[in-house]
Amino acid sequence: MIEAPASTPSARGVVVESVHDVCRFVDELEGRGAGELVVTGDAALGAVFVQDARICWAAAAGLARRLTELLMSHAGVDHRTMERLYSTCKRESLPLGEYLVDRGIVRPEDLRSVLAQHTVESLLTLVGPGRCARWLPRPHGGYSARFTFGTAEVLSLAGGICEPELVGCALDEMAGCFFSDEWAAAFVRTGDRAAPHPVALYGPAPESAAVLVRHAKWAISALDVVAAFGGAPEIVAVTLPEGRGARALVAYWYDGLVIVAEGDPQCAARVLNRRGQRKRGRG
């Protein structure tokens, strides 16, 4: 949410009470340029770097060593080795993560996973009630898109960190029902939040957190409508109009989660088949 007009054209205030606030701000930039959201309280708390509507990194005071720890666990190297690698990168002004990938010490997908984890953990540290940030436009950072994160992915990862017990179950269900070129997301509606929030994302992420939120609202609304006339709904599926890319959209309840997916016309049948198999397995 954007606050009152900025006192200067290059810096404006942004409310950052939740990761969703940050994602919404990034989505509203509509891909324009790059910059830094600097979060301050009594002292500097940290920053989020944004480029081309993607979050490149977030850094929070007190979490500096966390990235190194995550890299060590994925690289399988001890502390002393990591210190040596870090010193080399510092001396030669090389980005540590990409240096580790280039040397074959960490796989690219592991680096991406580590950077995402660290970014989202930092974001969760930075946001909170009453928190505000300043948006400072910056030159492009030259970050590779493969090591940066769309807001849909960030929002889902943040939800997953807050509700870790739901993630495995949600991903198993989505992987069992949908192909890897279809996207699906699992949402949970907790008592303290009016709108459902994502806890897991499967397949190619939609273009923004805003898309995820719109789909969640649609799903909840459709499932509620059905509950009003048809009892507990199993699934709601619609054929999408031409020109939307995917052909079908489905929504259903699964173990307390609302799952939404965009996929081919058979995706609803696959969900129903899987549900039938589970019932037969229990029976």
Binding site: A232, V236, T239
Partner: peptide, 9 residues
């Protein structure tokens, strides 16, 4: 949308 499907118990 052109069509929709809803299943319940």
């Amino acid at each position: 949308c052109p069509s929709a499907l809803v299943t319940s118990e």
